[in-house]
Amino acid sequence: MADDVLEAVLDLIPGIASRAADTDRIGRIPDDTIRELVSAGVFRMLQPSRYGGLETEPARFYEVVRTVSAACGSTGWVASVVGVHPWHLALFDDRAQHDVWGEDDSTLVSSAYAPAGRLVPVDGGYRLSGTWMFSSGCRFASWALLGAMIVGSEGRPVDFVTALVPRNDYTIRDVWNVVGMRGTSSDEIVVDDVFVPAHRIKSNYETSQLRGPGQRVNTGPLYRLPFAALFTTTVAVPIVGVVAGCYEEYLAAMRDRVRLSLGGGRFVDDPFAQVAVGRAASDIDAATLQLDHNIRELWALARAGEEIPLQLRLRTRRDQVRATERAIEAIDLLFKTAGGTSLFLGGIIERAWRDAHAGSVHVANEPQRAYALYGRDAFGLPVEDNLI
């Protein structure tokens, strides 16, 4: 089934690529593109089979994400981020899953995981208020997964959780006016004192421990994987895909280019350009291979029913941020060696450069924390972090 999704997506790539410039210009993915991705099954790949999903091996999902991202960074980012939410929803109480997919199993969910909300306990659940930034694809979603703190009687946080909230209970503020990933429509979500039933609340600590009510009904290996491994890979793969797509466009554009400066001559005969291509290609390949290797190893352990060791979880985070760094190093090299033509707004190299850098500033792509966590463990020091 994953092959069917990839085959369907490959047929869509020429159209997605042709709309990439307009997606960037208007700051929104066209509705037709989202409908095509829905029809191709992209958003079902990590969804439980009980609700019409494919329960695909994650590496196959990320292959699809890379393919889409190579054609349009914004579309690939939304395909990745919105595409991983069915997996997270599958960890919730089955009543929450039914709330979303009971009537329409093609319903989409967005997210904003920063704990910007405040949950106050009441009978049967909680009252939620807050404002969340950066909810990618929220314009296409009917529900949102929102990070929040449960506060006790003294107003102090007692737990960090994710709340599932329907579209009728929040407003979206159009604030996404940015330099890169412009088409993701990662707007602001506002909730003003709404009721959230207890079954739509999921403890982040419980999730990090690979347990919860969802695993009792979704028993496949997909739902025995760590949240941090999947989510952080989800925000690295599109960047690698963007840069890989740019690399191919760069080669095509430069093969016939003749320089009017630096002594003239064909660009492809310049040994410095050849070295740049070699370095960029190596970085792209290394990023792809490391991400894929770790996700496949996690999957193999989950399928075998074996415990996933902390060292592998930390290595996955280490390599995920390094993959982002490698991708940025590659796109910077391509951008620089392309010369002045890379500066023109709307060009493929210029847009890819902006998209890659914009994606890299996501908190999960911040390298120092991930490296430090890996280093602590390597030195035998205790490691505590929900994002591993």
Rank of each mutant, 00 (worst) to 15 (best):
G130T: 05
L373H: 05
Y374M: 07
V158S: 15
V81F: 08
H88N: 07
T33C: 05
S203F: 00
P309I: 15
R35N: 09
S360H: 06
I29A: 03
G73R: 02
R257Y: 02
V175K: 08
V165F: 04
L230T: 03
T324Q: 06
D192C: 07
L91H: 13
D256N: 11
P30M: 02
V151H: 14
Y113V: 07
R326F: 12
G245Q: 04
E7Y: 08
L91T: 07
D256G: 08
F344C: 08
L260I: 14
D192Y: 09
N204Q: 14
Y170D: 05
E63F: 06
V122M: 03
A330S: 08
R255N: 07
V161I: 14
Q368H: 04
R167A: 11
S110P: 02
A144Y: 04
D105P: 14
L222G: 05
P382F: 12
L373N: 01
G155A: 11
L260M: 14
A96C: 07
V240T: 12
R318H: 13
A40H: 01
Y223F: 15
W87C: 10
S208F: 00
A116P: 03
G76A: 01
V68G: 00
R44S: 12
D319Q: 12
F335Y: 15
A21K: 14
E297D: 05
D385F: 01
V81Q: 10
R127S: 11
S261A: 13
M181P: 02
D99F: 10
S69C: 01
I239W: 02
V191L: 09
V165N: 04
A90W: 05
V65L: 07
G339I: 12
T107G: 06
R296Q: 05
V242Y: 00
M45A: 02
G41M: 03
V363T: 09
P382I: 15
G147A: 10
S110N: 07
D332S: 07
D105W: 10
A356T: 09
R28K: 09
R315H: 06
D377A: 15
E297Y: 01
L262M: 10
